[in-house]
């Protein structure tokens, strides 16, 4: 009986998730350009990746993006949630406003920000010259400033996600615990540090994991804003997978890169689950 209910999901799951995971691993051991039959090459794709100078750059870019974008998103998201939690009227409207970028298509967001970052006619540089910066960055056409621009947009787009989750977490903390803290002289920063943050830690844990995993998958922003340029300065792991698979038709090589993405995500998740009992408090 139960299996009848499960049948549609099982078929779809096996066809589009279960088998493909295994297949991706198998393909990563082959050389395959889609036109000729695949050839088994063992670990060659992986060794090539490690000797691939561009791949090294790609991993560096991705790491930089994650290390900058994730902490900013989490800290800002938490601060805004703490602020919003104190607002009494208009909380819903503010929450919707902060969340709009999250539901906006990344393509549209990337387009509008490309325009805002336009070197000669963009708003960002207009503001920078208004505050007296004589030679504002060339942003997307500068190999130095393209990545910071992408990071800024990612923070803008994803901030609301963490914030909404933090806000829900804050609203889950019981008032009577705050009352007890008031009687125990835990006020202001002390209350934040000793009561609010520890009780929020399950949410922080969750937000950290999904933000980290999401960040490793950055693609559309780079695709639209910089097309991975200039000179691969913003080429990231998923873009590299796409590029090798669907522009260079190196399915094996792209799959090997995808397996590395998978390994990173698995590693982060497992490490976090191991570490969580050191700092996450479940009520």
């Amino acid at each position: 009986m139960a299996w009848l209910f499960l049948l549609p999901s099982l078929v779809l799951f096996l066809l589009f998730t279960g088998l493909p995971v295994v297949a991706a691993l198998v393909i990563s051991f082959t050389q395959w350009d889609l036109f000729n039959p695949p050839q088994f090459v063992g670990l060659q794709n992986y060794t090539s990746l490690f000797n691939d100078r561009i791949f090294g750059q790609v991993m560096g870019n991705t790491g930089l993006y994650v290390l900058a974008s994730v902490p900013i998103q989490i800290v800002l998201g938490l601060l805004f949630a703490l602020g919003l939690n104190r607002v009494i009227h208009g909380k819903t409207v503010l929450r919707i406003a902060y969340f709009l970028p999250v539901v906006t298509s990344t393509i549209a967001a990337a387009l509008v920000w490309s325009w805002l970052f336009n070197t000669n006619f963009g708003v960002v540089n207009a503001l920078l010259s208004a505050v007296g910066i004589a030679e504002p960055p060339k942003w997307l056409s500068s190999s130095k400033w393209a990545m910071p621009a992408v990071i800024i947009v990612s923070v803008w787009q994803n901030l609301g996600n963490g914030m909404v989750l933090f806000l829900a977490g804050l609203q889950n903390i019981r008032q009577d615990v705050y009352d007890a803290a008031a009687l125990d002289a835990a006020r202001g920063w002390k209350r934040l540090w000793f009561i609010t943050l520890p009780l929020l830690s399950p949410t922080t844990f969750f937000v950290l994991i999904i933000t980290l995993i999401g960040s490793f998958q950055v693609f559309e922003l780079v695709f639209i804003m910089t097309n991975a340029g200039p000179a691969n300065a913003t080429n990231t792991l998923v873009f590299y997978i796409y590029q090798n698979g669907f522009q260079f038709y190196q399915m094996g090589y792209a799959s090997a890169a995808a397996m590395i993405l998978f390994a990173i995500v698995l590693f982060i998740t497992l490490v976090q689950y191991r570490l969580q009992n050191r700092w996450v408090h479940y009520g």
């Binding site: 999901s9 799951f13 066809l15 589009f16 998730t17 279960g18 088998l19 493909p20 995971v21 297949a23 991706a24 393909i27 995993i213 490793f216 998958q217 693609f219 998923v238 997978i241 796409y242 698979g245 669907f246 399915m251 792209a254 799959s255 995808a258 397996m259 993405l261 998978f262 995500v265 698995l266 998740t269």
Partner: peptide
């Protein structure tokens, strides 16, 4: 648990096999 574990698989991992299917 298997269904849940699938949440941890980035969609880009299955992209190429799915494309081939």
């Amino acid at each position: 648990l298997i269904y849940l574990a699938a949440l941890m698989v980035p969609s880009q991992v299955t992209l190429i096999p799915n494309f081939l299917v």
